[in-house]
Design a protein around this nucleic acid. Structure first.
Lengths: 355, 355
DNA sequence: GTGAAAGCGCTAACAC
DNA sequence: GTGTTAGCGCTTTCAC
């Protein structure tokens, strides 16, 4: 059995309170006492029981991050950013993935790890307006990441899906592309990432006076590499002419890129390609991938800030906040740009990590 | 303030024990009582305070996973696998990253999140034999992942670094390559991944009767894409002839691939390239990347099994176990193989996820 | 089947 | 500066 405060206090010949004081850096302790206590702690290999401490003080200094799946590079990089932001402020992060189904997502939100965490960062995937009730029931401090689908009861940090997708599409239009594929649609969806990005795509076409051609909107189930590859292969089989692709995330774009290259289409000469997310891989692919940087790092930082404010100030009084983080269009080789417009170098020598 | 068992029991008009019984699915409760309690729970929005429960029962059903960084696809995929294995058994996972420095690694191991987790899965990066003492001091159930560097006090699940790297090198030798670069060495290291993989490379050369040419061993700081690119560019500048590259992980390989292609070297015609890790990207790159599948998924499963056994059986009696998970050589286009030998298809349509 | 009460290890009033 | 003690919310004997 692990040593307790009590054991330490006995060994050191002081009271339990004194030991607690030493551990919690209470200032006014005689040096000799402190030394005795420290020695006893070392001898017993004592570590405080955090469950007990958490119970007592009512907090755990752990937040949870609820995401679809870590396997997806965007979420892995997001998780990394969140963890850095959180650990800088003394919080650990417990990650829960729910995969890509609505049922699992609902299940995770419903249980939401009880009180063992102080707050939740929740990256919404499929929930929509109809689920607002459910979110109301989550009493714990919660910050929503992802879509701006709730005018709702929670703080919300979002990327600019519509604007980003529009900028991506416009970049291709500017380059003279006229038959631009939208890769990654979720038919019928309006409010999720896929719906919003499709809206941005549509807006860009509208503004350019181009009609929306349904043949050019390619639906997929999920946003994995395999989906991008499969969908692009099926699309090529249909022999529909096209000269550009706006993929709704980078992973889809890479799946499609492989199939395009296999089929002998040159990127960007025959087909200009742009993704969304700015994952690390985009800077080193052949060609490097143009993309929308959604501001992942800032999203993480802002979200953690908001969440900790709710936690630490118990700020239930404050109105829910909505933050839309700015995006950046990054033009690289896949749309005829330089290898990496972000660094302006032939090929970036440092990973684009900014913390 | 959140509702407690007490509040629920008052509202339901039963004792605290009865409520507890309902929550914990204790069998013999009158249906009418159960219904009353459930109604009260719903009305109050009660959720059990896990800190209190954990304190009482002495466990949290949380394990921590200590890794260098999530940003690295190998670890993201490993974390994903670990989380699936753990959640199947009712455990959540708290991830701690320590980056790529020895100091941070030591710091994380030293604190090891106190008793708030029931056990630790620790992916060793730089610690070596000299740090055995430190690990001895970690009282909590711990399973080591990664290198087989301790004959030591902890269970250990490892990939076959030497054998895998040897198989990778032999694949190139079999293909007639004679000037094979080893990309990713850590000079002076014997016992970490880099050291072991270099040993495998050397063994393969030895067995083929080829001398080791120091010029062909390329050191890097870390194993990111940027390092692979930077190192390969510097190497090309030296004009040392070569016809194959064994990269010590896939990410390095992709960084190098980009630079090779930029320089007009054809892969695999001019240079055969093989990586290590079998991350998802390897199946969709152009060319698809040959690699060593280290058995990530099985590593995760075995490690979780071992850890939970230690936790649940309190099995300090059992001798520490060492498990070496089998690897697979996967030959794809970058060494002149088919697009994806794993599926045998032109391009895999499903992600290679097996759970 | 249900209730009363002890106690998990800690923090923080409060006394001295 | 240090000791005493109550109690955080839960589980779990042990009565009844």
């Amino acid at each position: 059995m692990a040593a307790t405060l009590h054991d330490v206090s006995k060994l050191a010949g002081v009271s339990i309170k004194t030991v607690s004081n030493v551990i919690n850096d209470y200032p006014y302790i005689r040096e000799s006492t402190r030394a005795k206590v420290l020695a006893a702690i070392a001898e017993l290999g004592y570590t405080p029981n955090l469950s007990a401490r958490n119970l007592r003080i009512g907090r755990s200094n752990v937040i949870s991050l609820v995401i679809p799946e870590l396997r997806n590079a965007y979420f892995a990089e997001l998780a990394d950013s969140v963890m850095r932001a959180a650990s800088g402020r003394g919080y650990a992060v417990l990650i829960e993935q729910f995969g890509n189904t609505r049922e699992e997502e609902l299940a995770v939100v419903r249980k939401a790890r009880g009180q063992m965490v102080d707050g939740i960062l929740y990256s919404v995937l499929t929930l929509g307006e109809d689920d607002r009730e459910l979110l109301n029931e989550v009493k714990m401090p919660t910050v929503l990441l992802g879509e701006r689908i709730f005018d709702g009861p929670k703080d919300h940090v979002t990327m600019q899906n519509v604007e980003g997708a529009r900028a991506a599409t416009e970049a291709l239009l500017r380059d003279g592309r006229r038959r631009i594929v939208a890769l990654g649609a979720h038919p019928g969806e309006v409010i999720g990432s896929a719906g919003l990005r499709l809206t941005g795509y549509r807006e860009a076409l509208d503004a350019a006076g181009l009609p929306l051609d349904d043949e050019l909107v390619i639906p997929v189930d999920t946003w994995h590499r395999a989906d991008g590859a499969r969908a692009m292969r099926a699309f090529l089989d249909q022999d529909v002419p096209f000269d550009g692709v706006v993929a709704f995330n980078d992973t889809l774009a890479f799946g499609a890129l492989r199939v395009l290259q296999e089929a002998g289409r040159r990127v960007p000469e025959d087909v200009a390609l742009i993704g969304f997310d700015d994952i690390d891989e985009t800077r080193y692919s052949m060609p490097t991938l143009s993309t929308i940087d959604p501001g992942r790092d800032e999203i993480a930082r802002r979200a953690v800030d908001l969440l900790l404010r709710r936690i630490e100030e118990g700020a239930d009084t404050v109105q829910p906040v909505e933050v839309a983080v700015p995006f950046r269009l990054i033009e690289r080789e896949s749309t005829g740009g330089p290898p990496d417009a972000a660094t302006g170098r032939s090929l970036p020598l440092e990973p684009a990590v900014t913390h």
